[in-house]
Structure formats: structure tokens, C-alpha cells
């Protein structure tokens, strides 16, 4: 119980964010002509903000399964690096470990990173409650948006801007806390150059690959600044 209360307190910022973002997804999804229950299935099984937003137009255009898979892998590839931080600590989580791995979103990741668990509280339990509560907020938000979208005859054009705003906000947050701005600038410059050269449809994958390459080139210099942790 102590662990649950601790987790509930920790997750308040995510509660606000996820209700809003979840509702925006729910709205977007039903206003594209899909049923409300499918929106809930998405938030239950996919549970990835940016992916779910990008998924709506793909589904609406009846994109191929290959296209949907590729886009999802690309957008979520950054999660590979989130898991690395928790390879050790999740081992002690026991039965809930698979769920912790599944539910490791950007926001949950940042909460878990910033949470120091003192005994007698068990870290595994705290991590589990934080992860579960976050997903509950996301699903509740989705439901609110899906039902509001079905009930209200509003024109919701432009609501998808919430995704752009989310990325802009995370970008600002990372910029403020970063010890070096080189990685951010590297990504920014390469993205703009490739966008101009290759156009909006083709630039994402090459940009990510070249960004990784350039980050590796700057490794000696950057490891000195940000440390090895």
C-alpha cells in the first residue's frame, strides 16, 4: 500500500499529460472514422504515444502491414536505449518484469530514472505501480477522447498538433537538462539537410542512420563531456 501511494504521488505529472494526450489520441482516432473500442485496444496493446498518433493516418489510408510495421519500429527505436538503463534493476522485479518491459514509455522511463526507492519499499513494486498507473491514465484519457469525439459534433481538425507540441516540449526539456547540446544540434542539422535534399516522405530513415553515424564520430569528444554513465 505504501508503495502504491508513493507511486500515485510520483505519477501526478504524467496523469495530467496522459489524460490530455490520451484524449487527443481518442478524438483523433474516432474522428478518422474508427470505432471507440478499437481506440481502447490501441492504448491497451500498442501503448506508445507517438506511434499511436502516426498510426491513425496510416490506418485511414489503409497502409500495408509492412509500412505500418516499419514506421512503428522506426518511431519506437529509441526505446532500445531506454531498456538499457534497466537491464539490471528489472531483474529483481520478478513476475511483473514482462509488464515493466512492455510499459516502458518515454514518460514512465523518465519517472523510473528519477525515482529513488528506499527500504522497506520494494523497488519492483514501486516500478510496477508507476508503470500500471501511467497506462491506466493513458487508457482513461483515450476513452474520454473517444467518447467525446463520438458525442460532440465538433470539427477536431488540427488536434493532431498535440503530437508536434509533445515532441517540441520534450526537446526543450532535454535541451535544458543536457550537459552537451551537440547531440541535439547534430540531429537537428542532419534532419533539416535531409528534409531539403530528400523531401518529407523519404528523409526519416536516412536521417536517423546518419545521425547515429555522426554521434559515433563525436564519441571521443562527447564522452568527456557527458561521462560514461
Amino acid at each position: 500500500m505504501q508503495e502504491f501511494r508513493f507511486a500515485a504521488k510520483k505519477t501526478v505529472p504524467v496523469l495530467c499529460g496522459y489524460l490530455f494526450m490520451g484524449a487527443a489520441f481518442g478524438l483523433l482516432f474516432v474522428s478518422a472514422g474508427f470505432p471507440w473500442y478499437a481506440a481502447l485496444v490501441c492504448s491497451l496493446t500498442i501503448y506508445a504515444g507517438s506511434v499511436q498518433y502516426a498510426f491513425v493516418p496510416l490506418l485511414a489510408q489503409q497502409a500495408s502491414l509492412g509500412m505500418i510495421g516499419a514506421m512503428t519500429l522506426l518511431l519506437n527505436a529509441r526505446h532500445i536505449f531506454y531498456g538499457l538503463s534497466f537491464v539490471e534493476s528489472f531483474k529483481k522485479a520478478g513476475k511483473v518484469r514482462p509488464y515493466l518491459i512492455f510499459a516502458l514509455t518515454d514518460e514512465t522511463y523518465s519517472l523510473l530514472c528519477g525515482t529513488a526507492v528506499q527500504p522497506p519499499m520494494r523497488q519492483g513494486r514501486v516500478f510496477f505501480w508507476i508503470s500500471l498507473l501511467d497506462q491506466c491514465y493513458w487508457i482513461i484519457g483515450t476513452a474520454i477522447g473517444a467518447f467525446a469525439g463520438t458525442a460532440l459534433p465538433f470539427d477536431m481538425t488540427g488536434v493532431d498538433f498535440a503530437m508536434t507540441a509533445l515532441f517540441a516540449v520534450i526537446f526543450v526539456e532535454q535541451w535544458k537538462s543536457a550537459k552537451s547540446h551537440r547531440p541535439a544540434i547534430t540531429g537537428l542539422v542532419i534532419a533539416v539537410v535531409f528534409l531539403i535534399v530528400l523531401g518529407p516522405e523519404q528523409f526519416l530513415l536516412p536521417t536517423l542512420l546518419v545521425t547515429v553515424f555522426f554521434l559515433l564520430l563525436q564519441r571521443k569528444k562527447l564522452e568527456g563531456v557527458i561521462g560514461h554513465e
Partner: peptide, 19 residues
């Protein structure tokens, strides 16, 4: 580990441009 530390910042910049 190094990429784990630096890539998220770079990817977020790319995602803003992507949007």
C-alpha cells in the same frame, strides 16, 4: 551505452523536424 546517452536528444530533434 554511449548511444543510449546521446541518441535520445538527437532523435527528439529529428522528431520535431519530422512533425
Amino acid at each position: 551505452t554511449y548511444l543510449g546517452n546521446t541518441l535520445p536528444m538527437a532523435v527528439m530533434a529529428v522528431l520535431v523536424i519530422y512533425c
